[in-house]
Design a protein around this nucleic acid. Structure first.
Lengths: 204, 204
DNA sequence: AGTTGTGAAGACTTTCACAGCT
DNA sequence: AGCTGTGAAAGTCTTCACAACT
C-alpha cells in the first residue's frame, strides 16, 4: 500500500497529529472523520483518504483510535522522533522573538545557534543558545550539524544568505522575508511572509 | 477572457509583482518568462499561463513589459490600491516584533490597533498605534473599520479569540499559532506557524 | 448500525507543443 | 526571429458512492 503522500495531505496530517494530541490530553479516545471535519473544515472524504495513505488501519466501527492514529502519523512522517537541529539567521526584532519562543520546547526542533551580521547584537542579546557573527555561519553549521534555518534577515540580503545556507547543506529554510528564494532542490523553502499572507487574504 | 484566477496562480502573481518591482528599480524594462523561471523556479509555462489569466496582454516579442505587467497584476488583484486596516492581537514577543516591523510601510496594510489581555502590557508597550485590552476588541474593530487581524496569542486561546474576530466581521486572519482555526467562510485564514513550517520541511 | 477504505468520477493545475503575434 | 498565448494532454488532488469491515 505504502504510497507517496502528497504535499497537501502531509500538511493536513501534520496539523491533524497536533489536534489528536489535544484530544488525547482531554481524554478523548475515539474520533470519527465527521467530527474531524466539524473541527477543521476539511471534508471527511479527504481526511479518510489522507489517513488511508498512511497504510495502517487505525479505526474500527466507532471511528479512529485517537492515540493510535496520532502515533501512526508521527511515525510515518518521522515527526517528533529524532531531534532536529536548527539555527536562526538574523536577530532583529523578529529573530529575537523567535529566539525566545517557547513552542520549540514541545517539538523535536532545537535551536542551537543564532547569527547576525551586527556583532554588537550577538554580544548584547541574551538567548538560550550561542550567538555568532554571520561570517562564522558555514563553520558553525558544519560543527553543530545544523539541518534547518529560520531566516529573519532584511529582505535585501535574504537571497545571498539563503544561497550560503544552501551551500552549507542546510536541508530546509523557513523564510520570513518576502524575498523569492530559488535554491537547489537539496534545500527546501517554506515561505512565511506576513505581507504575502495579508495579500493572499485580501485578494481572495 | 476574464476568468477566476486559481489560488496557486494568485500566490505566484503576488510574489511576481514584488519581483517585478525589484526589476523596475534596477532599471530592467523587459523580462521573458524564461528569465522569470531562472529567478523563481516556476516553469515558464506556468508563468505564461498565470499571466494570461490576467486577461491583459503585457508582452511583445522581447518578453513582458516589466512595469506594465506589475501594474496589471496589482490592478487585477487589487493589491496596493486602497489602504487595508489591520490589528495585531496578542502582544507577546512575536506581537511586539510585528508591531515594530517596518515592512508594512511599503504595503497597503496599516496596523491601526493592538490588543492584549494583559493590561500591564498594553500600558507599558510603545507602538506607533494605540493598544487596547482584548475586552474592547469588538468595539475598536467596529469603530476603526478594521478588516484583517494578525493573531499572535498563546495557542490555548487562539480558537476562541479567532471566533470573536470572525463574529466582528474580520475578513481575514494571519494565524501565527499552531491552532487549527475553522471559521465561517466570511473569514479566511492564512497559517504561518513556524513549527508547522519546520515539520513540512523535515518530512518532505 | 455505523464507520471506514477505496475504485471511479470529477475538478483543478501543470505541462506540452506549436500557432500566432509583433 | 523570438517570444507569448493557448488548446489539448497529462498529472494531481478531491469528491462521490458504496462495498466491506467490525
Amino acid at each position: 500500500m505504502e504510497q507517496k503522500i502528497s504535499k497537501p495531505a502531509r500538511e493536513r496530517l501534520i496539523r491533524l497529529a497536533r489536534l489528536l494530541e489535544q484530544f488525547e490530553k482531554s481524554g478523548k479516545t475515539t474520533v470519527s472523520s465527521a467530527e474531524i471535519q466539524n473541527r477543521t473544515g476539511w471534508t471527511s472524504f479527504t481526511i479518510r483518504r489522507d489517513v488511508s495513505m498512511l497504510g495502517v488501519r487505525c479505526a474500527n466501527t466507532t471511528g479512529y483510535n485517537v492515540s493510535l492514529l496520532k502515533k501512526t502519523i508521527r511515525n510515518t512522517l518521522s515527526l517528533g522522533k529524532a531531534e532536529k537541529r536548527c539555527c536562526i539567521v538574523g536577530l532583529g526584532r523578529l529573530g529575537e522573538a523567535l529566539a525566545g519562543f517557547s513552542g520549540f520546547a514541545n517539538s523535536s526542533f532545537v535551536i542551537v545557534a543564532g547569527f547576525d551580521s551586527n556583532v554588537n547584537r550577538t554580544e548584547t542579546l541574551r538567548a538560550p543558545f550561542p550567538l555568532y557573527s554571520t561570517s562564522k555561519m558555514e563553520q558553525v553549521i558544519a560543527n553543530e550539524k545544523i539541518e534547518y534555518a529560520i531566516l529573519a534577515v532584511p529582505e535585501t540580503v535574504a537571497e545571498q544568505i539563503s544561497l550560503r545556507l544552501s551551500v552549507c547543506g542546510i536541508r530546509g529554510i523557513v523564510n520570513y522575508t518576502t524575498a523569492i528564494l530559488h535554491l537547489p532542490e537539496t534545500t527546501a523553502v517554506e515561505n512565511l511572509s506576513v505581507i504575502d499572507a495579508l495579500q493572499n487574504l485580501s485578494c481572495k
